[in-house]
Amino acid sequence: MSEAFVLADLPEFFLRFLTLSLLSIGGAMATAPEMHRYLVREQGWLDESGFTTAVALAQAAPGPNVLFVPVLGYQVAGLVGAAAALVGILLPSTLLSLAVSRWGSRRRDTPAVRAFTSGLAPMTIGLLFVAGWVLALPFVREPDHRLGGIGLIALTIAVMLKTRLGPIWLILAGGLVGALGAV
């Protein structure tokens, strides 16, 4: 079914990520199913575990989650693949974002743009609560990690709301406590 990736595949590979970029509303993770279809099922350049590993690594490492895309590229075609995938997934969306935000900030005080910013703010804040809930869910679900996990989440919220401490100290403390097996 599949053939190994050759350099001649690179233009098509790059083009595919350029297209996916414009479909990645809500983040690059939204296009993960489509990348899976292309890289694993259609072309067979990656196996299932390679795909899952890329997503897990990007989530475990610091930085934006979009970095699972260059990891996929790296697994398919080394550093050239990583570069093609990253530039592909970011270039169109970057140009569009810059154009739209410049257009919007020039018209910042018009009723239409003010309606946009104030009309969307409640939804945005609601979605941030959901994002926090989704991150907390694994700790709520698993009895083994429930007590330590929820304790750490609650402590983090309290420190963030009551102090001006930088988040890195909490992240380091969380890592340390976790490595010792308390979470």
Binding site: I157, P167, L170, G175
Partner: peptide, 10 residues
């Protein structure tokens, strides 16, 4: 896992 719990809290 510990860092994950902190990021949920953040």
């Amino acid at each position: 896992r510990g860092m994950g719990a902190v990021s949920a809290g953040l």
